[in-house]
Design a protein around this nucleic acid. Structure first.
Length: 633
RNA sequence: GGGCCCGUAGCUCAGCCUGGAUAGAGUACCGGCCUUCUAAGCCGGGGGUCCGGGGUUCGAAUCCCCGCGGGCCCGCCA
């Protein structure tokens, strides 16, 4: 076989398809079997043919099976027909070798088709207002966005990660009010982080006071205007506070394993006049209109009448009667920029560095750096929770009205993270009797901070690490516990369906057993220990009968390339998390039932190859999921 | 009122996009397995009207329609 063609499951699938095609079947309909009893791959072609010819599927299957010529088959050993299904069984000695050889020849690139070479993807995620620390809901956003970015990169895409920082909204004014009028010092209390101090204390208190004190509310409005004006005490103070909070927030993101390329400040969109340019285009295209009368008199509105669904709810205000722009307006300008729909591009300053050494840029009025990213963009993916679905659709429709490639603009929506009754009560909130979940709220200070969650997980993991490795020093314990905590949180936030809210139950999450990130890490560590204790000689040539546990593992490993091939079209992360769990689970069964180091030499060499292939495949998967690898646990 | 989403084991969820053979995990509960590669593991057990009803199909948890229950969105907030 040719060295650069697939050798595992994909080769088997195409071989089965070819065999069927030679019998004259139009649609071979070959798929991996759901049960090994049905062979390795199965075809339902007989059902399709039977429908056409109005015959019994079982007869058709029998007929097809008898006409399949296996004389030139490489992997397929026999074809059986059962109840209309065609089950292909393989020569496992050759198939196992083919799977292992493919893994070893591809190495760390196993599973990547390289389909993204020369293509660029823009991913925006995180985008937390810089007035508070990240809570666990934000962490879901970060982990999803970062995982998308990891997978695309693995497939060869150039990925540009953006983080949108809304540094000029009313939420900033609330915070600044606390510093200027309520007497809060700029320095947080000892041992407190600045973002937590801002979010937990100053912001919450400021919101509460402004609700009951009209003069403070008036001062807050004044601060909003001053921040947007681009000068004055509030503007300067805000700039300072934004940067401090942002640096703390990014520390949390770094802890979670996320990386960024560009931080886009909302104020830059104003400073660069992006909105004015986009507004002018919208006017020329008659996509917006001025309301002379009615409840929206004095406003500029986006005409939604051409949209099948949005039109039912009335047009969208972009410019208020006082001349200020709405959030939607600025979001449209930003989205247009992403798609190359503005003539101006940002300039940047260096803000910091990712753990991999790559730079993080931040937009700046008189920046010295340029980073043109808008050419040759295949897709723009925006990770934003589902509550923004309608606003995002409005933005997308505006892009269409602007004549931009709105099909490329994708809202990657996901459900929120909410508190369980138990956790809400712990935080001093009293749920209604029939209330099952409690939504987090930054304004009320009702949220579980991402760092706090990580710290709890780390403390729990630390207990286990100390118990298992009493000889380890504090540093090593801490380092391991941190990685375990990150694995636990990341995995729990990405393994679940995007369409389902995650109800945070901290007690459950602190159990580091079962379908969890630490289970994956533990499995990897077990495999590493075998390799560490073994001599280095292994062989992909099976010896004797291959056990069912080995077959299951090999089957699963051979499936990764197919799984990743599907990713660019469905953007689903969950199947990969699911895959990781199943692969780990199958390795553990193998581990318990098939001794490696104790086995007779020829068997040992083959099993070592299986273990080595497993660590190769599994480390790829864990890296894609952002689950830190631990060689000892 | 309009739009979107969810409903599968006591609990938390896979499977649904792309229909396929006896519907799977974790957890909880009960019972086994550490002189042999790490027990954060493995093995066994009980536990199901796949929300209900129609339809399409050789075949429906999966696709379509109608209900029921729950969540979210629909501001000159961001």
């Amino acid at each position: 076989m040719e060295a650069d063609s697939p050798m595992g499951l994909r080769r088997l699938l195409s071989e089965a398809e070819r065999l069927l095609a030679r019998t004259g079947v139009a649609k071979p309909a070959v798929q991996p079997s759901r049960d090994p009893r049905f062979g390795e791959v199965t075809s339902t072609a007989a059902f399709l043919v039977a429908r056409e010819l109005k015959r019994d599927p079982r007869e058709v299957a029998e007929d097809l099976a008898s006409r399949i010529d296996l004389s030139e088959a490489e992997l397929v050993e026999s074809v059986e027909h059962v109840n209309g299904y065609l089950n292909f069984k393989v020569d496992w000695t050759r198939y196992a070798k083919a799977i292992l050889d493919e893994i070893f020849s591809e190495g760390a690139g196993y599973g990547s088709s390289g389909i993204g070479e020369g293509r660029r993807i823009i991913i925006e995620h995180t985008s937390v207002n810089p007035n508070k620390p990240l809570h666990v809901g934000h962490a879901r956003n970060v982990c999803l966005g970062d995982t998308l970015s990891r997978i695309f990169r693995f497939l060869g895409y150039e990925v540009v990660v953006l983080n949108y920082v809304d540094d000029s909204g009313a939420q900033m004014a609330d915070l600044i009010l606390g510093f200027t009028k309520l007497g809060y010092p700029l320095e947080p209390p000892p041992n407190a982080r600045f973002d937590e101090y801002c979010g937990d204390v100053v912001y919450v208190e400021s919101v509460r006071r402004a609700e009951s004190d009209p003069s403070l509310a008036e001062e807050r409005r004044r601060i909003v205007r001053e921040i947007e004006s681009g000068s004055g005490e509030a503007f300067r103070l805000n700039k300072l506070v934004v940067e401090k909070v942002l640096r703390d927030q990014l520390e949390t993101c770094r802890r979670l394993g996320a990386r960024y390329d560009i931080l886009n400040l909302e104020s830059a969109i104003l400073e660069y006049g992006l909105w004015e340019e986009v507004f002018e285009k919208l006017r020329r295209r008659r996509a917006v209109y001025y309301a002379a009368e009615g409840s929206k008199a004095g406003c500029w509105l986006l005409d939604l009448s051409g949209h099948p669904i949005l039109s039912r709810e009335g047009d969208e205000v972009l410019v208020r009667s006082d001349g200020t722009t709405t959030y939607t307006a600025r979001d449209i300008a930003y989205a247009a920029w992403k798609l190359g729909g503005t003539s101006k591009d940002f300039e940047y300053d260096l803000f910091g560095e990712n753990p991999d050494g790559s730079p993080i840029y931040i937009t700046s009025k008189d920046g010295e750096l340029r980073k043109p990213i808008r050419d040759n963009v295949e897709r723009v993916i925006n990770v934003i929770d589902v509550r923004q679905k309608r606003p995002q659709e409005i933005v997308r429709y505006a892009l269409k009205l602007l004549g931009l490639e709105f099909e490329k603009y994708i809202h990657y929506g996901y459900e929120v993270v909410a508190l369980s009754r138990k956790d809400a009560k712990r935080m001093g909130y009293e749920p209604e009797p029939d209330q099952k979940i409690v939504h987090m709220s930054g304004r009320r200070g009702l949220y579980v901070k991402a760092d706090r969650m990580l710290d709890m997980l780390k403390a729990r993991a630390g207990e286990e690490v100390r118990r298992r490795h009493p000889e380890w020093g504090a540093d090593r314990v801490e380092e391991n516990a941190e990685k375990i905590a990150v694995a636990a949180l990341r995995y729990s936030l990405i393994k679940q369906d995007l369409d389902k809210p995650i109800i945070l139950d901290t007690d459950e999450m602190l159990k580091l057993e079962g379908d969890t990130g630490p289970y994956l890490q533990y499995t990897y560590a077990r495999a590493c220990r075998i390799l560490e204790k073994a001599d280095s000689s292994y062989s992909t040539q099976p010896y004797g009968e291959i056990g069912e546990d080995e077959k299951r593992l090999l089957r699963r490993m051979s499936y990764l390339p197919i799984l990743l091939d599907e990713f660019p079209s469905n953007l689903m992360i969950k199947p990969l998390a699911n895959y990781a769990y199943k692969l780990a689970s199958e390795f553990n069964v193998f581990y318990e039932h098939a001794p490696v180091l104790q086995a007779e030499e020829n068997v040992r060499k083959f099993r070592l190859a299986v273990v080595k292939a497993f660590t190769t495949v599994f480390s790829i998967v864990l890296n894609l999921l952002g689950v830190p690898l631990l060689e000892v646990m």
